[in-house]
Computed example of a mutant assay.
Amino acid sequence: MSTPLHRRRALRLAGAGALTTLLAALPLAGTAQPAAFPNKPLTLIVPFPAGGPTDAQMRALAAAAGKVLGQSVVVVNQPGVGGTLGPANMARTAAPDGYTLSIAGNTLYRLPLLQKVSYDPLKDFTYLINLTGYTMGIAVRADAPWKTLDDLIADARTRPGQINYGSTGVGSSGHIAMERLAKATGTSFNYIPFKGGAEEATALLGGHIDFISNAGWGAQVDAGKMRLLATYSGKRLKQRPDVPTLKEQGYDLVITSPIGVVGPRGMPAQVVAQLHDALRQAMQDPTYQRLIAQWDQDDLYMSAQAYHDYAQEQMPKEKVFLDQLGIELK
């Protein structure tokens, strides 16, 4: 028969064993489990003004991606510096946690060759996914005197530097494309930079410039307010079979301008994969697809790795074009 002392000792041992089991089942102090991503709204920076084609497309994409992620994706417009101000600000200030992303275009790789910038396109971004590409072209007002590209070039030869054109920022794809055409034809034009497509379209329709070399003319062409003289695409657009390409008119110029989504450098691989998959799914959204088709764009999907590799290859290529053209920021 146990003595009271023996019973008390047994109870203490049993209590200690139960406490040990309980503590083992609890997480260690200071090692709280990370919250599932995402657990709050995300921000998507669109580096062009509100109201333009890219803005409309990316708002549709953000809405679709938000449904996949289970959190809203808020679009913030940060136009300026040829579409690089937004991603540059993000790279400099945003945490690499996946909650702040930006749209990026080819000017991101070109601008560092023209001026000092606050970012390194090869090191300061996490490339998540490429979405589509701008379909570049040369568009004039519907009442312009030039019916063909040859008409425009012939007039420019008689009035060098007197015909004004616009695009989105010095060093933008539309600017470089037109300067390459001018060099190939022995002509010169007066370039006027704008912050975004909506602004330059307004300037063209208002008679402040003579033509645009850019994307985003689709709706105005369809409405009969602009005439498309030529595209920089590799083949005629299926939506516009009557519009010739520059290449078929004897100018060896095929210009592509991909746009995708980037984040700050150092993002966790799991977050990159989750965002890539959500955006890939959002690309199938009917509203988004309708809006890119409206501006004669197609899907130009690149995975995170393929988009990263593409970005690494662009600066050497862009340097060749800039050196040939002698373009400098004014």
Rank of each mutant, 00 (worst) to 15 (best):
M1I: 00
H6M: 11
H6G: 05
L11I: 12
L11D: 06
A14I: 06
G17I: 03
T20S: 14
L22Y: 07
L23I: 05
A24H: 05
L28F: 05
A29D: 08
A32E: 10
Q33R: 11
Q33V: 04
A36G: 04
N39E: 07
L42R: 02
L44N: 02
L44M: 11
I45V: 14
V46M: 04
P47C: 10
P49M: 08
A50L: 03
G51V: 01
P53T: 07
T54Q: 11
D55R: 06
A65H: 02
G66N: 06
V68C: 04
G70H: 04
G70E: 02
Q71N: 05
S72E: 11
V74N: 13
V75N: 06
V75A: 07
V76K: 13
N77T: 01
Q78V: 08
G80Q: 05
G83P: 00
A91S: 14
R92S: 10
T93K: 15
A94M: 05
A95M: 09
P96N: 06
G98A: 09
S102I: 00
G105M: 01
G105W: 00
T107V: 04
T107Y: 03
P112K: 10
L114S: 09
K116V: 06
V117D: 03
S118K: 10
L122E: 13
F125G: 03
L128F: 01
I129R: 10
G133V: 00
Y134L: 10
I138Q: 01
V140G: 07
A144N: 06
D150Y: 00
D150N: 10
D155K: 13
P160G: 11
N164P: 00
T168D: 15
G171T: 09
A177D: 10
A177R: 07
M178C: 05
R180I: 00
L181C: 06
L181Y: 08
A184T: 02
G186R: 09
F189A: 09
I192W: 06
G196R: 14
A201M: 11
T202I: 04
A203I: 03
L204Y: 06
L204I: 02
L205N: 07
H208G: 05
D210A: 12
I212G: 09
G218M: 07
D222H: 08
G224L: 06
R227C: 05
R227Q: 11
L228T: 07
L229A: 13
T231N: 13
L237N: 11
R240D: 09
P241N: 15
V243S: 12
T245C: 11
G250S: 14
L253E: 13
S257L: 00
R265S: 14
A269D: 12
A269E: 12
V271L: 12
A273Y: 04
Q281R: 15
A282T: 03
P286K: 12
Y288H: 12
W295E: 15
Q297K: 13
Q297C: 12
L300Q: 14
L300A: 14
L300D: 15
S303R: 11
A306W: 08
Y307L: 01
D309K: 12
Y310E: 07
Q312G: 03
Q314L: 14
P316D: 13
Q324G: 06
E328S: 14
